[in-house]
């Protein structure tokens, strides 16, 4: 079966601000496979290379070497992003537009016919519980509401793959629960979800498989249950062990 996301020997280098300094290697020789219908957790401490890998998958950053594919199409081709939905960590939308206008804008980009766009906009605004605020500009929304607009825009094309960058970051417990419910619903619908998070309890609950990277390199990859059984510990303990955290030193 063809993987939905495939990363092969990915290496990403960033130019140092000072030309005399060596280039910074953000991702080094990363290999990943995410299969259809999986909820895949992409974990790592800050600066591990998670966002860079996502940026390569989304076509924001060019790989120095190696390749990445979505649905078998090289991410260098814009069409690779036709069947994905992306939710950034923070809300980055045009604040002068209303929720309805934002969704209509993205629906146009995907070439949805007007009637179909209307139907999906109504459905999504109900799903994220923004129906009463649909005509208000985004600048009047709270952070949680803006994040829900983000979820709605990520789903406007009814994507087969969702890429979520720390989707619950900065949300209150209620907001987190709603996001979890939506991910769970998408999983039940057979969608593939690729997401990064620092909420390891949440990852353990939702994910089928996880990958942990540190300093740009893949440290471990496998199903959550398999890792838990193998290490006789919960995901947080496994994570801390893999990234080399030593509690006795910290104490």
């Amino acid at each position: 079966m063809e993987p939905i996301v495939e990363v092969k020997n990915l290496r990403v280098e960033y130019r140092a601000p000072n030309r005399r300094q060596a280039k910074k290697v953000a991702v080094n020789g990363l290999n990943l496979r995410v299969n259809a219908g999986e909820v895949f957790g992409f974990l790592g401490p800050n600066g591990a290379g998670k966002t860079t890998t996502m940026n390569v998958l989304l076509g924001f950053v060019e790989a120095t070497s190696g390749d990445a594919f979505l649905f078998g199409v090289n991410v260098r081709e814009p069409i690779a992003r036709q069947r994905i939905g992306y939710l950034p960590e923070l809300t980055y939308y045009y604040k002068f537009l209303t929720a309805e206008e934002i969704l209509r804008f993205y629906a146009k980009i995907f070439g949805l016919p007007a009637a179909e766009a209307d139907r999906r906009i109504d459905h999504l605004l109900k799903l994220v519980e923004l129906e009463p605020a649909r005509k208000r500009p985004l600048k009047t929304y709270s952070k949680g509401m803006q994040q829900r607009v983000g979820i709605a825009q990520a789903l406007i094309n009814d994507p087969d793959l969702l890429i979520l960058d720390e989707p619950t970051s900065g949300l209150d417990p209620l907001g987190r629960m709603k996001v979890r419910e939506i991910i769970q619903r998408l999983k039940n619908e057979g969608k593939t979800v690729f997401f990064s998070s620092h909420e390891l309890g949440e990852v353990e609950t939702i994910c089928d498989r996880v990958a942990i990277i540190n300093q740009g390199e893949l440290k471990v990859e496998g199903s959550v249950s398999q890792l838990v059984a193998q290490h006789q510990a919960n995901l947080e303990q496994i994570f801390l062990k893999i990234i080399g955290y030593q509690p006795q030193l910290a104490a």
Partner: peptide
């Protein structure tokens, strides 16, 4: 600056 370019280019947009 507002980073609206990210969700935009995450769509099939060049």
């Amino acid at each position: 600056e507002n980073r609206t370019i990210f969700p935009l280019l995450a769509k099939p947009v060049t």
